[in-house]
Design a protein around this nucleic acid. Structure first.
Length: 248
DNA sequence: AACGCACCCAACCGCTCGCTG
DNA sequence: ACAGCGAGCGGTTGGGTGCGT
């Protein structure tokens, strides 16, 4: 069938953005907000493809971007998320505030891949490079972080249409990653969780934000705010709801 | 100083998805 | 049900930079 080009390529700039173009894009989005990228370049007086504008804004100009090096915690979280989600960079980025999918993708390809290879782990499969040790699982990754997850009983049947749990559980037997399809959840006020709590380890002695107390104090009837955070920091009622993998 | 190489990362490209008429 | 379109995603590319020789 073929698609019409997203813009008039003959009259668009390509390559690196100039300061002036950045300023135009920033001021336009400040005034009008994001959206309708196709018409934005013309409206903003930019000789750029809408796609290019979107990418520039999302990956470089957004005010909430966290510039600078990745922390060790971010490293490990990326590794862990990648072992579960694969190359779903946007989903991974959704769990790393201030980071973009492109940034994480680049960081993965340049730093983390090598880091895993140095650890003897295949970055693609998260299994030991020496497949003779294939009985060992992705848990290998967890052990490198000195974080242990509470054993949660994975369900063996999928009566509610949950998806792809099996393979993940096989690779991460100590994780409860049941996926369900459900209506969008209501946004809960976000607490400032320490990294340990963001991994769902509220009872850990390493918790520095005292969420653990709030959670355990009312353990007989878990309050909404204590409705368990899975290890990805996703709020959950014991099931992993992929709708909460909020996109950028 | 000059050159070559490796690395990094911003940007591009092509595809898929989801919405709309 | 289908086609067209815009938005978004992931893979790839290429220019810039740093480092070693």
């Amino acid at each position: 069938m073929g698609r019409s080009p997203c813009c008039e390529k003959a009259h668009t700039n390509k390559g690196a953005w100039t300061k002036e173009e950045d300023d135009r894009l920033i001021s336009y989005i400040r005034a009008h907000g994001e959206g309708c990228w196709r018409s934005l370049p013309k409206a903003a007086g930019l000789l750029r493809c809408g796609k290019s504008c979107r990418l520039r804004w999302i990956n470089y100009l957004r005010p909430d971007l966290k510039r600078g090096n990745f922390t060790e915690e971010e490293d490990e979280l990326i590794i862990k998320l990648h072992s579960l989600l694969g190359n779903k960079w946007s989903l991974i980025a959704g769990r790393l505030p201030g980071r973009t999918d492109n940034e994480i993708k680049n960081y993965w390809n340049t730093h983390i891949r090598r880091k895993l290879l140095n650890r003897g782990i295949d970055p693609a499969t998260h299994r030991p490079l020496n497949e003779a040790a294939s009985a060992a699982t992705v848990a290998t990754v967890a052990t490198t972080t000195n974080i242990s997850f509470g054993k949660q009983e994975p369900e063996t049947s999928s009566s509610n249409g949950s998806v792809v749990k099996g393979s993940i559980i096989e690779r991460c037997p100590d994780l409860n990653l049941e996926l369900t399809i459900s209506p969008p959840r209501q946004q809960q006020p976000q607490k400032n969780l320490c990294f340990v709590c963001s991994l769902g380890l509220h009872n850990s002695k390493d918790c520095s934000c005292n969420v653990a107390n709030a959670v355990t104090a009312n353990s007989s009837a878990p309050p909404a705010s204590a409705a368990a955070y899975d290890f990805l920091g996703l709020k959950t009622n014991g099931v992993w709801d992929c709708t909460s993998l909020e996109m950028k």
